[in-house]
Amino acid sequence: MSTDPNQAVACRTVDAEERSLLGRVLDRIADHCRARSLFVLHYCTGCGAIELPPTMTSRFDLERVGMQPMVTPRQADILLITGYLSVKTLKRVVMTYEQMQGPKYVIGLGSCTINGGMYWNSYATIKLLDRYIPVDNYIAGCMPRPEAIQQVFLDLMGRIDRGEAQAWKDYYRRYDWYLGQQQQLFGTNWQAPTDVVGEAIRYRLVGEQTLGSHTAHLERYAPYYDQLGIIRPEPARMKARPQLEVVSR
């Protein structure tokens, strides 16, 4: 919401996220509850999964802060990627991520998700997880100790409480870019079973990069994309999450 008084004079454009006082109070309550009730879906193909039982059970007890393991993506809030992802498992992660309901958060655990880790020279594993799905937090280390995992969970809880963890919206707003990255690995005919663009329209999360050259081949499945002309794309205003700069070699 803009606080610039000059902007509020004449025909100010109505911000889609601008809320009344009551709306903001309700949002605050909802964020407070969201931060204290996080259901975690573990994607345990990597070795990092071994650090989670101590984090969950009596030694460190994640339930103290309201976290519970959940077994299906529909119920979960956090997708915890525990270690390396091969190209084949990345496809499943993307499908799992798209089945989760927003607000949803992704945590990359271990060095593998950050820069390939000890599998940096493998032809089969991906190196940068945040090129394919938006990642809220990374935990560096090989392996990170349960203390580090807790530290990141607390950090994420703090950001959810303050309403800052909005990376999941980035997936809708820049779907074309994410789909392009996925297509580099899965082939140009790749399309997820979930209608992400349709969801972006439904929940008014269409950004300037939601549609593009990579999503063009999806349009034959969804004739309603041409209604997009009606919906005005939001101005580029990524205050919550600054664009991640990936340093190219």
Partner: peptide, 19 residues
């Protein structure tokens, strides 16, 4: 694949420098 270069300030910020 592309790589991400190490940035020293990541060590100070548990959210990986982008939180």
């Amino acid at each position: 694949f592309e790589w991400r270069e190490y940035q020293p300030e990541w060590a100070n910020d548990p959210s990986g420098g982008k939180g």
